[in-house]
């Protein structure tokens, strides 16, 4: 049985169907890729899965519990952690405090160990040196890592990463790739949204492709790379500007 099973998920903004009947399965411990041109609905899908948006139709089942319609905090407590495309930190709290908040779902019982856990998560992503610095003072790349660390403190079963490599340089991206592999090694499933194809193709087991809110392909990196619909979506006449936009990202 898959860890997460989204079935015919739909999310509309007024007349715009940002996510259109998308079905997606994520197995335990797998690294799932999600790609698509700008505006194709990737972030919206992540927001819907994490409960930030309420889906308009479809179901989401997390290890046999129907979670669609649950509020975000409840989904987080059920074991889905996430990062954000546009970094969302507690900017005026310290790095360690940020991580500690990430452990909120562990509940009161774990309160004693929470500090140690938070420090462990910071060490895991490699920013423990900065623990007493205010989050807003961190370099950009480290802010991205802090988001991941915060998501990891509570040991989620599924980690949703929304463009974690955006804005990172080559070396940082390399380190990120390695970090994702280590997260995978801890048997945490990952849903990775990325524009960096090298990263996606290297780490993901299966990749889904969105275009205009619809899933147009789903398969191994090799399959995806040769899927005509995907090539059309990325390189086709109608989407030249959009892929140019993607490059800029």
């Amino acid at each position: 049985m898959p860890l997460l099973e989204a079935c015919r998920l739909t999310k509309r903004f007024g007349g715009l169907v940002a996510v259109n009947e998308v079905s997606l399965e994520i197995a335990r411990g797998e690294i799932r890729g999600l790609i698509g041109p700008n505006g194709s609905g990737k972030s919206t899908l992540i927001n819907t899965l994490s409960g930030v948006y309420r889906s308009d139709a479809g179901s989401i089942v997390l290890s046999s519990a129907e979670i669609s319609g649950w509020p975000a905090h409840r989904i987080a407590s059920a074991g889905i952690a996430r990062t954000f495309q546009e970094i969302q930190l507690f900017a005026d709290m310290t790095v360690l405090e940020n991580a500690i908040v990430g452990g909120h779902r562990l509940g009161r019982a774990e309160e004693k160990q929470i500090r140690a856990r938070a420090q462990a998560a910071l060490a895991f992503v490699g920013i423990e040196r900065w623990q007493d610095e205010l989050a807003r003072n961190l370099p950009y790349g480290h802010q991205r890592l802090l988001e991941i660390a915060r998501a990891l403190v509570a040991e989620p079963e599924l980690l949703l990463l929304d463009e974690p490599a955006a804005g990172l340089n080559a070396a940082e991206t390399e380190a990120l790739m390695e970090l994702i592999m280590r997260i995978h090694a801890q048997t945490t499933a990952v849903l990775l949204v990325e524009h960096n194809m090298r990263l996606v193709m290297n780490v993901c087991h299966i990749i889904a492709v969105l275009d205009y809110g619809r899933k147009i392909a789903d398969g191994s990196p090799q399959e995806i790379q040769h899927d005509p619909a995907v090539i059309e979506a990325y390189l086709g006449t109608k989407s030249v500007e959009r892929s140019a936009g993607a490059e800029r990202h």
Partner: peptide, 26 residues
């Protein structure tokens, strides 16, 4: 305590807090 920390987190960034499992309205 954990309670106050959750409050401050909500104030600082509700989205991030909620996605860390903090029940905002609660």
């Amino acid at each position: 305590s954990r309670f106050g920390r959750a409050l401050v987190a909500l104030r600082e960034n509700e989205l991030a807090a909620v996605c860390a499992g903090v029940d905002s309205l609660g």
